[in-house]
Computed example of a mutant assay.
Amino acid sequence: MATTAEEVGILVKRVQHRHHRALTAALADLGVSLVQWDTLRHLHRQPDASLHALAQLTYQTDQSFGTLAARMVDRGLIERMPGSGRAVRHRLTPRGEQLRAAGEERVLAVVTQSFAGLGGDDLDRLAGLLRQVLEQPLSLAGAPAS
């Protein structure tokens, strides 16, 4: 029996959920949540990112990310800097960079362990297939009304 798109979607979600649980546990003793660490990672890659950009990168609304950013500023993990116009930019503090680096080692260990059963060719094939899926436009126009 052929695998359905629905089954594949559920499998992708299960892998994501497994990663989320394992990463949350791996980061816990650093005192940083997964979404906080993800913010630190994105700021490391994109210094001076705006609140809106960070919200999109971390899959949050601007409002929820604003609350998260305020907590991270209070903890000394990030700082806000004035940008052009009304824009506010964000940067890592030395403490935020330290937690990002420590977390990166743990995240790499979890993800490496998770995919350890796949060889290099399998990983390449999986990555290629997922990129192919992501390149396809997704329209909700045909979705049934609720």
Rank of each mutant, 00 (worst) to 15 (best):
Q36P: 02
W37I: 08
W37T: 02
W37L: 02
D38Y: 05
D38K: 13
T39N: 04
T39M: 01
L40N: 05
R41Y: 15
R41F: 11
R41V: 00
H42P: 00
L43Y: 02
R45H: 14
R45S: 12
A49L: 11
A49E: 11
S50M: 06
L54V: 14
L54S: 11
L57N: 09
T58P: 06
Q60F: 04
Q60A: 12
Q60K: 07
T61G: 14
T61F: 10
T61P: 03
T61H: 04
Q63R: 14
Q63E: 13
Q63D: 05
F65E: 07
T67N: 07
T67K: 10
A70E: 10
A70M: 10
A70G: 06
V73M: 09
R75G: 08
G76R: 02
L77I: 00
L77Q: 06
L77V: 04
I78F: 07
I78S: 03
P82V: 08
P82Q: 12
G83V: 05
S84R: 14
A87E: 15
V88E: 13
V88W: 05
R89I: 00
T93V: 05
T93W: 01
P94Q: 06
P94I: 06
P94V: 10
R95H: 11
G96K: 09
E97N: 06
Q98R: 13
Q98F: 07
L99R: 02
L99H: 03
R100D: 12
A101V: 15
A102Q: 15
A102S: 14
G103K: 02
R106A: 11
V107N: 05
V107D: 09
L108F: 11
A109N: 07
V110Q: 04
V110L: 03
T112P: 01
A116Q: 06
L118M: 13
L118S: 03
G120C: 03
G120F: 00
G120W: 00
D121V: 03
D122M: 04
L123K: 13
L123P: 01
L123R: 13
R125E: 14
R125G: 01
R125W: 08
L126A: 11
L126P: 03
A127K: 07
G128D: 15
L129V: 10
L130E: 10
L130Q: 04
R131C: 09
Q132S: 13
V133Q: 00
L134Y: 00
Q136Y: 05
Q136I: 02
Q136A: 10
L138W: 09
L138Y: 13
L140Y: 09
L140A: 13
L140M: 05
L140D: 10
L140H: 09
A141G: 01
A141V: 13
A143K: 01
P144F: 09
A145W: 00
S146E: 11
S146P: 14
